[in-house]
Design a protein around this nucleic acid. Structure first.
Length: 517
RNA sequence: GGCAGGGUAGCUCAGCCGGUUAGAGCACGGCACUCAUAAUGCCGGGGUCGCGGGUUCGAGUCCCGCCCCUGCUACCA
């Protein structure tokens, strides 16, 4: 019963060409809540996040700013890290593709593929229309009137380049079988169907190296004409999940494979097709799951610089604090689809669910325990409220433990329901009335004790989502130590009898409403 | 164009294999209570269930057609 399960969770590494925005934050916060939940479930959790720091764009941006690429990515990584600290992201590790360990790991992985499947890498001349503005080859769909759609003033050049290629086409059957045998491999199901659709269309081989830029990991073997090329994006970025474990050192074998990769739905293909094919080619175990979340939209549109759709992360966090922001995003935006961010909804949820419902519940309960029982939570017997909570705790766990995917929004809905029930409980049992009747002292004890247990449970369940606020509420209701050290598996037996409440400042102060007169 | 998923109260969404008066939360209106962050609880108004046909004793719930929306349709990451 005490078997500790290993839980290695990763997020996509963010490209170091810009500042963190709400899309990055959503993914990290979601993964963080899942990681924290698993820690409180008693699992051996390792939570990895990081940065993707190579490539042409980074090199070019660095050049424009007159700094070295390394200096640029160092500064960018600092800004991302500062944001993750601010949002209480509890990652155990922060991998960067410029880490020497990562570069060595990538080369080791490539060599391992050469070793196990010598035919999987081959040289091929690629030719196509090259746009100097984009510094990239363009596909037919991106060419209009013989010009690149993004740079219509420039002339496309027919360019030929000899690169290393990876025989991805070999792995279609393998991938299909794996996905069919492991229905949970790609989730949610809509993404899985998409991937199966891609497989139906057939896979083409992909390039594995580039000769046009050098900011990256040197491809371990030169081409036949002696040229030393740079490892192309997927063979550089995707292996971070593996190299972060220490690969190829032996010690890494305990951590790999990842339990789940949390990614955005826009990079499903890389994680569901290319990455598993690479691992299979290297004869390494595949990750257990790939979970592709949706996007946070603003006014129905995706964040985009060109459309002017943007939201200042600092402002959003500054409004009600990091915990409220975390809560709002995960409550409002389903983790298996898209959702909208709007200030109106943020205000609504903050005021209704956090300030009025939960913050006030904690406040009124602590006040009553103080007023009627001198601040000490009385002993009280288990009642119907505890039974109802047990069912909800089970639903909460089911939303986060992976059996139905990863649905933090469902988990939060459940806790909000528990909080609502607690407020009904207070109203219907009316402790203030019981307190006036000396013959009902026992009844008052039971009521207050039950109320304290309910709140204690809510603190535990909210802890993965709002670590600071959950801890503050835990303290107010008289809990000792860290709420994060509690176990969701032992919640049913949690007893608050004897705790001494400590009323404090409101957990979620109501916004100051400007009023006339 | 092809494939997939949707169009249900003002807003966000539940409605499994077809079955009695279509639900929840928020917002709105009224009432109650006083422990509390002018918080909470109760009651209520409010919907041609995208449009048109069809199957059926009976259809948001199945079938056909149409309209609209979203996603995917691989080398920027």
């Amino acid at each position: 019963m005490n078997r500790v399960s290993r839980f290695y969770i990763t997020t996509a590494i963010d490209y170091a060409n810009g500042d963190p925005h709400i899309g990055h934050a959503f993914e990290k916060i979601g993964a963080d809540a899942i990681a924290r939940f698993h820690r409180m479930n008693g699992d051996d959790v390792h939570f990895l996040i990081g940065m993707d720091e190579h490539g042409q764009k980074v090199a070019r941006t660095a050049e424009e700013r007159g700094v070295s690429p390394q200096q640029l990515v160092d500064e960018t990584a600092e800004r991302f890290l500062a944001m993750w600290r601010r949002l209480s992201i509890s990652n155990d590790q922060f991998v960067r593709t410029t880490d020497p360990q990562h570069k060595a790991g990538v080369q080791a992985l490539l060599e391992r593929i050469f070793e196990h499947n010598p035919d999987d890498f081959f040289e091929r001349s690629y030719e196509g229309w090259y746009c100097v503005g984009c510094e990239a080859f363009k596909q037919d769909a991106e060419i209009v009137d013989g010009k690149c759609v993004l740079h219509p003033t420039r002339t496309l050049e027919w360019v030929q380049e000899r690169n290393w290629f990876f025989r991805l086409s070999r792995y279609g059957t393998f991938l299909r079988e794996h996905i069919e045998r492991h229905p949970e491999f790609i989730q949610p199901e809509s993404r899985r169907n998409e991937v199966l659709g891609w497989l139906d269309q057939g896979l083409e081989d992909i390039s594995a190296s580039r000769s046009r830029f050098s900011w990256g990991v040197p491809f371990p073997r030169p081409t036949s004409d002696g040229e030393r090329q740079t490892t192309y994006v997927w063979f550089d970025a995707l292996p971070n999940y593996l190299t972060a474990t220490g690969f190829p050192r032996k010690e890494s074998e305990g951590r790999w494979p990842a339990t789940v990769h949390i990614i955005g739905k826009d990079i499903t293909r890389f994680h569901a097709i290319i990455w598993p094919a690479m691992l299979q080619a290297a004869r390494l175990p595949l990750p257990g799951r790939v979970w592709a979340h949706g996007f946070v939209l603003l006014g129905g549109d995706r964040f985009s610089k060109s459309a002017g759709v943007k939201l200042d992360l600092d402002e959003a966090i500054g409004r009600y604090g990091a915990d409220a922001f975390r809560y709002f995003l995960l409550r409002e935006v389903p983790f298996d689809g898209d959702g909208n961010f709007s200030w109106e909804r943020f205000e609504e949820r903050y005021t209704a669910e956090l300030a009025n419902a939960w913050g006030n519940l904690v406040s009124r309960s602590a006040a009553m325990i103080e007023k009627y029982r001198g601040g000490a939570v009385p002993a009280g017997s288990r009642g119907a409220a505890d039974e109802a909570d047990a069912a909800d705790v089970a639903a909460y766990v089911a939303a986060l433990d992976g059996r139905n995917g990863y649905l933090p929004h469902e988990a939060l809905r459940v806790v909000a329901r528990m909080v609502a029930r607690s407020n009904e409980f207070v109203q219907s049992s009316a402790p203030w009335a019981l307190a006036k009747d000396p013959t009902k002292s026992r009844q008052l004890d039971d009521t207050l004790a039950s109320l304290a247990r309910q709140i204690a449970r809510q603190c535990v369940l909210y802890a993965p989502f709002m670590p600071e606020k959950a801890q503050a509420a835990w303290r107010q209701i008289g809990g000792s130590g860290e709420v994060a050290d509690q176990r969701v598996t032992l919640l049913d037996g949690l007893d608050a009898g004897g705790w001494v409440v400590a009323r404090g400042e409101p957990l979620f102060p109501r916004p100051i409403v400007a009023r006339e007169g």
